[in-house]
């Protein structure tokens, strides 16, 4: 009734024949903070990207705020995407631009083409960006190049860029996977705080079970493209964790660090 997102029978087969998602269904309500956990290759990124159609699903439907994402024209899709903020593992900032320019990019979807390409942001947008930067302790980096910041700082800029979109839903793809424990805590805390304050629904892909248990109001476990768990964090037992991670103890012990290595290798090869 009060749901913001409804995914039905979602299947994604890549052209190389790999089935990344098979028949995934989930309903998410306004204000939920959902963590999706699962080992590397379980389909977390694919699921997240099907929601804003960065990846075209093979079958199934995604209903967001009353419209079927898979049936929208490309112009309608662009409009809807403004309402869905996204945060990435590698921040995905434009390193050669300043911090504030990167934050203001969140407004581009709302602007007319000419002012947008000339970077003529409105005063209220600038004000808002500066306020957010101050709130998150980045006010001394406003005119610094994004590439010169530390990983944790860059991720905070990424969060602010997404927030500038005034999103209803926030998609976070492993936002802390390449951060040190201290920055990871800071970034997760910030995502939680900023989205709760604004009543933004949040879906976060995570490797780390601890982080999921700590921050999420609901946890979804993915294994080989299937949902194998969907409940509150307190229902997540060791047995279930073992099931989610396919009985591979390495995933549990070494957690994020090991995955980072394997993912980096996948990217290189």
């Amino acid at each position: 009734m009060n749901k913001i997102l409804s995914v039905k029978n979602l299947t994604k087969r890549y052209r190389n024949g790999i089935t990344a998602l098979s028949n995934v269904s989930m309903e998410i309500e306004h204000g939920e903070f959902v963590a999706i956990i699962g080992s590397s290759g379980s389909g977390k990124s694919t699921l997240l990207r099907c929601i804003n159609r960065l990846i075209q699903p093979t079958e199934g439907s995604v209903e967001f705020d009353g419209s079927d994402i898979c049936k929208l024209s490309s112009a309608e899709l662009k409009k809807i995407r403004r309402k869905i903020g996204m945060i990435f593992q590698h921040h995905n900032l434009v390193n050669s631009l300043t911090v504030i320019q990167n934050v203001l990019h969140g407004r581009l979807g709302y602007m007319r083409t000419i002012p947008a390409v000339l970077g003529l942001y409105s005063d209220s947008d600038r004000r808002k960006a500066l306020d957010l930067l101050e709130q998150t302790g980045l006010n001394s980096f406003v005119t610094q190049r994004a590439g010169e910041l530390s990983g944790g700082q860059q991720q905070r800029v990424g969060i602010l860029r997404a927030l500038m979109q005034n999103p209803m839903l926030m998609l976070c793809d492993e936002p802390i996977a390449s951060l040190d424990p201290h920055s990871a805590k800071l970034v997760m805390g910030l995502i939680k705080q900023l989205t709760v304050e604004r009543g933004i629904t949040c879906i976060v892909n995570l490797h780390q079970v601890e982080a999921a248990v700590r921050y999420a109001t609901r946890i979804i476990g993915l294994d080989h493209g299937n949902i194998v768990f969907d409940d509150t964090p307190d229902k997540l037992t060791d047995d279930i964790i073992r099931k989610i991670y396919g009985g591979n103890p390495h995933d549990l012990i070494i957690g994020g660090k090991m995955h980072e290595g394997t993912e980096a290798q996948e990217l290189v090869s």
Binding site: N52, L54, K78, N92, S96, T113, A116, V117
Partner: peptide
């Protein structure tokens, strides 16, 4: 990755080219 971020903001082609790809 930058292209992906640009698409996710809902920016149109010219905005993506001028604000994300060119500076990169």
């Amino acid at each position: 990755e930058i292209r992906e971020a640009a698409v996710a903001t809902g920016a149109t082609y010219w905005k993506r080219v001028f604000c994300f790809i060119l500076p990169d």
